[in-house]
């Protein structure tokens, strides 16, 4: 509570001092951050630039031909295999982000508005499963959904089905369930943070002016938490499109995604330029999709208000 007050009190003093030392402060800051920055440039920026460059080249067995060509993009965009994989990946990541956000919202709401003293404990409870190995979580879903799996055993035990069903594993819905579970935490936290920022007196004002719980929620809380919904959607949607473990383990034939094709191009198929073009296309398309979803959410939030 004292921090903002101190900040205000300290501000004029700092202002006075800063002008002469502005130069050196900037230099110090940049100097201090430069090792980390250079690391990120070497291992993130340059690699991505190189991938983009590669996507315009061609590969002849082991040598790379560096003449500019759009052939890889032609294949990536028109070959029915890749087009289908890309469309399916986009559809899956759209579904997954929808379900994670819709399922996460009430829990974030509960923690923020009714968590009381135990807010920290609830958050910790929700983050723990996320930190366990992703590979293991996918594997546990395989154990649950499989032919001899937990779900089949439960259904038979309850007398709902007579024999085990193979309908649960190796399809798109298995991929969607597994990914929805895997990304749950990533959706709860941003929504929680944006709910925490809502000025509670606005909610009280709505109550005083006669709004019921539902109207109050729809007109005050939901629109004001739109930033959290947006970042949750982004943080789930973009990485999900590039997942290849889940489709490989629980997806079967119908669940293969674009990342499996990318992985094949960098592995067995060994066509780096095509793999690079597929990566760039995926990134571009998923960014476009994410941007339009963000736009839709923003418009909806404005409309309600």
């Amino acid at each position: 509570m004292t921090a903002p007050a101190e900040g205000i009190a300290a501000l004029p003093v700092v202002r006075k001092q800063r002008n002469p030392v502005l130069q050196s402060e900037a230099a110090r800051g940049l100097g201090l951050i430069s090792p980390t920055f250079i690391y990120a440039v070497i291992f993130l920026v340059i690699p991505i630039v190189l991938v983009i460059a590669n996507s315009f080249w061609t590969q002849n067995y082991l040598t790379i031909d560096r003449t500019f060509t759009l052939e890889n993009y032609r294949i990536a965009l028109t070959d029915p295999i890749y087009r289908d994989l890309l469309m399916r990946s986009l559809w899956i990541s759209l579904l997954v982000s929808f379900f994670t956000v819709v399922l996460a919202y009430p829990i974030a709401f509960f923690i923020s508005f009714h968590g009381g003293k135990h807010k920290g404990l609830w958050l910790f409870l929700i983050t723990i499963p996320f930190w366990t190995s992703y590979l293991l979580r996918v594997m546990s879903w395989k154990v649950i959904l499989g032919y001899n799996g937990v779900l089949n055993a439960t259904l038979m035990g309850l007398g709902i089905t007579n024999g085990p069903s193979d309908a649960f594993l190796y399809n798109t819905s298995a991929v969607v369930i597994t990914l929805t579970h895997a990304w749950a935490t990533f959706a709860v936290l941003p929504i929680f943070v944006s709910l925490e920022k809502i000025d509670r007196s606005l909610v009280e004002a709505a109550t005083d002016l006669g709004d019921g719980p539902l109207r109050r929620f729809l007109r005050i809380t939901l629109p004001l938490s739109a930033p959290g919904i947006i970042s949750a959607t982004l943080i789930v949607m973009i990485p999900t499109v590039g997942d290849f473990v889940t489709p490989r383990l629980v997806g079967g034939k119908d669940g293969v995604m674009i990342a499996n094709a990318i992985q094949a191009q960098f592995g067995k198929a060994a066509n780096w330029p095509l793999g690079a073009a597929l990566s760039v296309t995926t990134m571009a398309v998923v960014t476009a999709m994410a941007a339009s979803v963000v736009l839709v959410i923003r418009m909806a939030a404005r409309r309600i208000r």
Binding site: V241, G242, D243, Q263, S279, M283
Partner: peptide, 13 residues
């Protein structure tokens, strides 16, 4: 927020 496979593949390249 980047798909991990894309980060991995670019580093591999």
């Amino acid at each position: 927020v980047l798909p991990e496979i894309i980060v991995a593949v670019s580093m591999l390249l």
